[in-house]
């Protein structure tokens, strides 16, 4: 049995008409982590989630989910899903939506009531539970969507664009909730294009573009460039000091010095030099490559590597 909750090898999907949405994806998702699947529009992210949740049949490749072959209904009983553009029946109340999913997943009736109460509390929808879905805001619907995805006490939760249309306060609550779910030992698979939402909470990411995996792993390992310290100051640095710094590959500009290093101790001589020349240090900042930078770098490198079309 695979040690991963999701273990995919060479997953391909070709739609009718020959459009290749996935061109052989290998992916391993460890248990109990927050896993981010990133990619531009049309990259194949949703296709991937749909294959995992049986909404789409793969054209090729093999894979397991929770130790069972893809498509196994027993495995699906331990899976929660909030699909992209989730549409809940508007004649149901928020509570009924959660109970509906519980019924579909064969959750015992007594357990359903208790879990529904807990989940409504968790997503802060207890007060609005008896209102019809059609009266909910987008953010409220997403909260109910997350709650229904958890009603069967799933081992793995797929969230496809979960913060789409959610206000900033709702997004903060979402991040807190994701961390809580991870602490409970669940694996959370988030499919999103809002990178800033993912960066503070994600353990591992996979970046796909044009149906192919461009990078996968722990975020810090994926970051290609070394962190850098930037020091902003007022005044003019002496030419001798500037030349000495440049000789040590330190970037010196007007009012700004940038030191590429992971270690703060290597920045101390620069600060000492500025103090010695009585220059006023305005700001010192440690900068790492953001997830957005990483994402754009990977996508750009893909585009650069793709040969231009041959003119007919």
């Amino acid at each position: 049995m695979s040690e991963y909750v999701v273990d995919l090898s060479g997953i391909r999907k070709t739609y009718r008409g020959g459009v290749e949405a996935l061109k052989g994806i290998d992916l391993q998702v460890p248990e109990g982590c927050i896993y981010g699947l990133l990619g531009p529009n049309g990259a194949g992210k949703s296709t991937m989630v749909k294959i995992l949740t049986t909404l789409i049949k793969k054209s090729g490749g093999t894979g397991t989910m929770l130790g069972r072959p893809l498509g196994d209904r027993t495995a699906l009983q331990q899976v929660g899903l909030l699909p992209e553009h989730a549409q809940f029946p508007d004649y149901l109340t928020g509570r009924q939506v959660i109970e509906f999913t519980a019924g579909l997943q064969n959750v015992p009736t007594a357990e359903t009531k208790q879990r529904t109460d807990e989940l409504l509390d968790l997503v802060q929808m207890t007060e609005a539970q008896q209102r019809k879905i059609k009266s909910y805001s987008k953010g409220m619907k997403q909260r109910i969507g997350i709650a229904q995805a958890l009603v069967n006490d799933p081992k793995i939760v797929f969230l496809d664009e979960p913060t789409d249309g959610v206000d900033p306060a709702g997004r903060r609550d979402f991040r807190v909730l994701m961390k809580k779910l991870r602490e409970e030992g669940r694996t959370i698979f988030i499919n999103t294009h809002i990178l800033s939402e993912l960066e503070p909470i994600v353990d591992r990411v996979a970046i796909i573009s044009e149906g192919q995996l461009r990078g996968e792993g722990v975020l810090d390992d994926l970051r290609a460039s070394t962190p850098e310290y930037s020091i902003e100051f007022e005044g003019t640095l002496s030419i001798e000091a500037a030349n000495a710094m440049k000789a040590e590959a330190i970037k010196v500009e007007s009012g700004l010095i940038t030191v590429s290093t992971s270690y703060a101790t290597e920045v101390q001589p620069v600060i000492d030099q500025l103090r010695q020349e009585n220059l006023v240090i305005v700001k010192i900042e440690r900068r790492t490559q953001s997830l957005e930078d990483l994402f754009i770098d990977l996508i750009d490198s893909t585009k650069a590597a793709t040969p231009p079309p041959i003119p007919s």
């Binding site: 949740t53 049986t54 009983q77 899903l81 699909p83 989730a86 809940f88 999913t101 229904q148």
Partner: peptide
């Protein structure tokens, strides 16, 4: 069979 509805219905225990 709409995208968001199918996801709610067809990814569960029943075939």
């Amino acid at each position: 069979m709409k995208e968001g509805s199918a996801g709610m219905l067809l990814t569960k225990k029943p075939s």
